[in-house]
Computed example of a mutant assay.
Amino acid sequence: MHLVPRLRSSLAVMKNPTYTGENRCVPCTLLNLVLAVVLSVTVVAVLSGTGTALGAPAGVATFVAATALIYFRGYLVPGTPTLTKRYVPERVLAAFDKAPERTEWVETDPRELLFSLGVVVDDPAMDDLVLDPAFVDAWNRSIEVHRTEESELRRSLARLSGTGPRDLEFRDGPHVFALETSDAHLANWPSQAACIADAAGAVVLPEWDSDWDRRPVAVRADLLGVLRLFLERCPTCDGHVSLSQDVVESCCRRRDVAAATCRDCDARLFEMDVDPAMG
């Protein structure tokens, strides 16, 4: 009577969550599928060479077993991440990387655009670029609202993504905070704190940018992302934010990044790939 739910539950238990589901590494999975094909073809060739008629059925059975193992456990061959790092070209790994993709500037460099809007100003005393104090005050007030009221967070993200607040779903995974609907993936942030900062900024920036509603979503996202570079306090715990150069290691690749991170809760607020040779 309850055979199907029990079967689903049994299959779910067999899965290794470390390397399956949202944590599945696409390059490693593809490499293992290739190895499964090679193994199956080898079985067919070996058995066919003995004159038996079992070559083809055995090859099919081998491939089915191998793909089932990859589906449930993540890997067919132990040590796959090491093999992938060593033998798969970096440009291929980058194409499948789980980090949010960097978009091309549709209009102009977002730092220049924020400067032209007066959001970012030159501070001669610090000999550096800083946020306009009036913008900082408004942004901090907005962050406080979005940190404490999830309904406001949903409304701001809905306006930003063009969806209904009730349709939005949050997924908090390893090194990623995602915004989704039941049938679409909308956006990634490195943490919930970064998401709150962007939602709060999307409320304040239109007061400074008369063209905000006409800008492509990609440009608005880039502007909000650059704003996070100027955060001094964490949007979730109010801890101090520091800038540093770090190495981010996924399942099968390493990236050098410039990062803004909360010292207290370790939330990643901003992350940008850098050339290690420039350090």
Rank of each mutant, 00 (worst) to 15 (best):
residue 84 T to K: 01
residue 55 G to R: 10
residue 104 E to W: 03
residue 48 S to C: 08
residue 103 T to S: 13
residue 48 S to Q: 09
residue 74 G to H: 05
residue 78 P to A: 13
residue 49 G to K: 10
residue 109 D to H: 14
residue 100 P to E: 15
residue 77 V to H: 04
residue 81 P to E: 03
residue 104 E to F: 01
residue 109 D to N: 12
residue 97 D to H: 12
residue 108 T to G: 08
residue 120 V to G: 04
residue 40 S to G: 09
residue 121 V to M: 11
residue 114 L to F: 08
residue 94 A to Y: 14
residue 32 N to L: 03
residue 58 A to L: 04
residue 76 L to Q: 01
residue 41 V to Y: 13
residue 91 R to P: 03
residue 102 R to A: 14
residue 115 F to Y: 09
residue 66 A to L: 04
residue 46 V to G: 02
residue 33 L to H: 10
residue 78 P to V: 14
residue 109 D to P: 01
residue 95 A to P: 01
residue 110 P to K: 01
residue 69 L to W: 14
residue 99 A to S: 10
residue 63 F to S: 10
residue 51 G to T: 11
residue 54 L to A: 15
residue 89 P to E: 00
residue 47 L to C: 13
residue 115 F to T: 09
residue 31 L to T: 00
residue 67 T to D: 04
residue 50 T to N: 10
residue 110 P to H: 00
residue 112 E to Y: 13
residue 73 R to Y: 08
residue 80 T to Y: 02
residue 105 W to F: 11
residue 32 N to E: 00
residue 45 A to K: 14
residue 36 A to T: 01
residue 93 L to M: 08
residue 51 G to D: 07
residue 60 V to D: 13
residue 110 P to D: 09
residue 53 A to K: 09
residue 41 V to P: 06
residue 62 T to E: 13
residue 39 L to Q: 12
residue 109 D to T: 07
residue 33 L to M: 14
residue 53 A to V: 05
residue 44 V to K: 06
residue 58 A to E: 09
residue 110 P to N: 12
residue 34 V to A: 03
residue 50 T to E: 07
residue 56 A to L: 15
